[in-house]
Computed example of a mutant assay.
Amino acid sequence: MFTAINAANAYSTARNAVAPGSSEGVVDKVSDAASGFAQQMSQVDSVATGAMTGKVETHQLVQTIAEAELAMETVVAIRDKVVEAYQEILRMPV
């Protein structure tokens, strides 16, 4: 079932992806986060197909969609922070 623990884990993963001072480069972190998001969306597609063919139960479909929604909200929040930082840089006097 979709719980607050899942949300906390997703937040923790996203936070680590953009944490300063780690040995991994930012590009690698963003690439890993993007591939994780793509994997989550692929899982939603396969579960939805399974639900339509009767191979997957409805509650599994609902859980997968809820997890995908959380992943999408995390991606949008990260995108918003990047855009906000870029706009701040543009406003800096030269």
Rank of each mutant, 00 (worst) to 15 (best):
R79L: 13
D32K: 14
A48M: 09
A14I: 10
S31N: 09
V44P: 03
M41K: 11
V94Q: 14
A77D: 11
M41G: 00
T3L: 04
T3W: 01
L70W: 01
S22C: 08
L90M: 07
F37W: 08
A51K: 04
V27Y: 11
M72F: 14
D45R: 00
V76F: 12
A7I: 13
A71C: 09
V76W: 10
V26F: 10
A4T: 12
V83C: 01
E73F: 13
Q43V: 09
I5W: 10
A14N: 12
V30E: 02
M52T: 09
E57T: 05
A17I: 08
M72T: 15
G54D: 05
A7E: 13
L61M: 05
A51Q: 00
A51V: 04
I5H: 13
V94W: 13
L90F: 09
T13I: 07
Q63C: 08
T58S: 01
A7G: 06
E67Y: 06
E69P: 00
Q60C: 01
E88K: 08
E24P: 04
N6D: 14
A77R: 01
E24D: 07
Y86I: 06
V27N: 08
L70P: 00
N9R: 15
Q40D: 02
V18Y: 08
V27T: 13
M1G: 11
M92L: 15
M92C: 12
A34W: 11
R91E: 06
T58L: 03
A48H: 08
T49N: 14
M92F: 09
T13W: 04
V26P: 06
Q43W: 08
A14Q: 08
G21H: 05
F2G: 04
H59M: 10
Q60R: 00
L70Y: 08
I89C: 07
V62L: 05
V47Q: 07
R91S: 07
D80R: 10
D28A: 14
A19Y: 06
A71Y: 03
N16D: 15
A8G: 01
Q87E: 14
S46R: 10
A85Q: 04
V76Y: 12
G36D: 00
A66Y: 02
A8E: 11
Q40Y: 00
F2E: 00
T49E: 12
R91D: 06
G50D: 04
T13R: 12
G21K: 02
N6V: 07
A4K: 07
S31P: 04
V75K: 12
A38R: 06
V83L: 02
K29D: 12
D28C: 07
A4D: 14
K81N: 10
A19M: 10
I65T: 14
G50H: 04
T49V: 11
L70Q: 13
L61H: 05
D28I: 09
I5V: 14
M41D: 03
S35K: 15
D80K: 10
T3E: 03
L70V: 09
T64G: 01
T49G: 13
F2T: 07
L61A: 09
M52C: 02
D45L: 03
T64H: 00
P20H: 05
V56P: 00
R15N: 12
F2R: 06
V82W: 00
S31Y: 02
G36C: 07
V94K: 15
A14G: 15
V47K: 02
A38P: 03
Y11I: 06
T64P: 03
A34L: 15
G36Y: 01
V56W: 00
L61I: 01
A14Y: 10
Y11P: 02
